[in-house]
Simulated scan of single mutants.
Amino acid sequence: MSKKILSINSGSSSLKFKLYKMPDEQVLASGQVDRIGIENSTFNYKINDKTTETLRPIKNHDEAIKAVINMLLTSGVIANKNEIAGVGHRVSHGGSYYPESVLVDKDVKKRIDELSVLSPLHNPVNLIGIQDFEKLLPSAKEVAVFDTSFHQTMPEESYMYALPYEYYEKYGIRRYGFHGPSHEYVSLKANELFGNEKTRRVISCHLGNGSSLCAIKDGKSVNTSMGFTPLAGLVMGSRLGDIDPEILPFIESKLGMDSHEVLEMLNKKSGLLGLSGVSSDVRDVEKAANNGNARAEMALKVFVHQIQHYIGAYASDIGGLDTLIFTAGIGEHSWTMRSAICKKLAYLGVKIDEEKNKQSALSIEAKDSKVKVAVIPTDEEIMIARDVMRVAGFN
């Protein structure tokens, strides 16, 4: 029996959604509310290949969710709210509590709230989305799908920090990793497209405002660049990535900042934004670099170098490289960043065809490349919908 399943991805100032007819995986409606709580909020949605964009004030996530449900009703995609059997929510951090997706209950909501300290940009709004949908769709089953779950297969040498062991035992301090649904989706898609032999050893590059790499062997996560929180790993739009921890008390002392102010700076004022002084958006930084801005040029070099550094390490983790995947906003759309990243990877057998790369073709490797290089649009929402069907017992 078919079910209508809604996949939700709540960001700090955005709400992405897709409504599916499952198990057919037919998209009935999709869209995004942007600039929530900011001037010039936009609501874009697509039904039957027709895209509509509205500009309207949307004060908070509650209003955004009401706008989505109202659109589904007035457009006739659903006749009534009870037609939506399940809602799946992308949740950033599941800690050590949730190795897989779960039905939402009071304890789950409490845990998500507790873990907000580890993912301050995402867990709080993820929880708001869950609570609002519970009110608006009381008959639907709510499922939490955690960014961290896919990485539960990492071996201890990948996830353990060299801190006193009791910190891991008492407080669960370890590497968790994020962007799990994205890394899992593109690795499954690559296997479907290229077969088992070309996808035994995969490195997935999820590059966007938030970025992470994942080493995948035989379909399982072996290592990933984000850590205890989404702040670790690569240089990102406004997030720092890896750092010498001694720098933090040094900054506090020199600038008179407390730990909360430092954390705010690391999450929102660092990365490409902090280095370039231009923007957290790689497109703006590239434009500035092309116009002779030396700091913007330097920021891009640091961004690319960090990615190359992790690719080399992860190729070692999985014993070589069969397929390199680019996905997410930068990975899917910036041919210049893909080109810059791949230039120093010849030692791994990576060679790309620049014409195919400029077209963002599915396969951008050159004919004599030993490694498949793929540009695969991510689809976290379908992974969420599949988990709702499984966890809610609809299969």
Rank of each mutant, 00 (worst) to 15 (best):
I65T: 04
I65A: 11
K66G: 07
K66Q: 13
V68Y: 00
V68G: 02
I69K: 06
I69L: 15
N70P: 06
M71G: 01
M71Q: 12
M71E: 10
L72P: 03
T74A: 08
S75K: 11
G76L: 03
G76V: 11
G76I: 08
V77Y: 01
V77P: 02
V77K: 02
V77E: 01
I78S: 09
I78D: 07
I78T: 11
I78H: 07
A79P: 05
A79L: 11
A79Y: 09
N80I: 03
N80S: 13
K81S: 10
K81N: 11
I84D: 00
I84Y: 06
A85N: 00
A85F: 03
A85E: 04
G86K: 05
G86D: 01
G86A: 09
G86L: 09
V87Q: 04
V87C: 02
G88Q: 08
G88I: 10
H89D: 05
H89Y: 08
H89E: 02
H89R: 07
V91T: 08
S92T: 13
S92W: 05
S92R: 10
S92M: 13
H93D: 05
G94V: 11
G94M: 10
G95M: 02
G95S: 06
G95E: 02
S96V: 15
S96N: 15
Y97C: 11
Y97H: 15
Y98W: 12
P99E: 13
E100N: 14
E100L: 04
E100W: 03
L103Q: 12
L103S: 05
L103F: 04
V104S: 00
V104F: 08
D105N: 15
D105G: 10
K106E: 15
K106T: 15
K106H: 15
D107S: 14
D107K: 15
V108D: 00
V108N: 05
V108W: 01
V108F: 06
V108H: 00
K109A: 05
K109C: 13
K109L: 09
R111G: 02
R111C: 10
R111N: 14
I112L: 11
I112V: 14
I112F: 01
D113C: 12
D113S: 15
D113R: 12
E114H: 02
E114D: 14
E114F: 08
L115C: 06
L115P: 04
L115G: 05
L115V: 08
S116W: 09
S116K: 09
V117L: 11
V117R: 08
V117N: 03
L118V: 07
L118R: 09
L118D: 02
L118H: 05
L118E: 00
S119L: 08
P120G: 06
P120Y: 07
L121G: 04
H122F: 01
H122S: 05
H122N: 05
N123S: 03
P124R: 08
P124F: 07
P124W: 01
P124A: 10
V125E: 10
V125G: 03
V125L: 01
V125Y: 09
N126M: 03
N126H: 07
N126W: 07
L127G: 04
L127T: 04
L127K: 08
I128V: 14
G129A: 05
G129C: 10
I130S: 00
I130F: 01
Q131I: 12
Q131A: 08
Q131G: 03
Q131D: 13
F133I: 01
F133D: 04
F133C: 01
F133R: 00
E134D: 09
E134W: 00
E134R: 03
E134T: 04
K135I: 14
K135C: 05
K135T: 14
K135P: 00
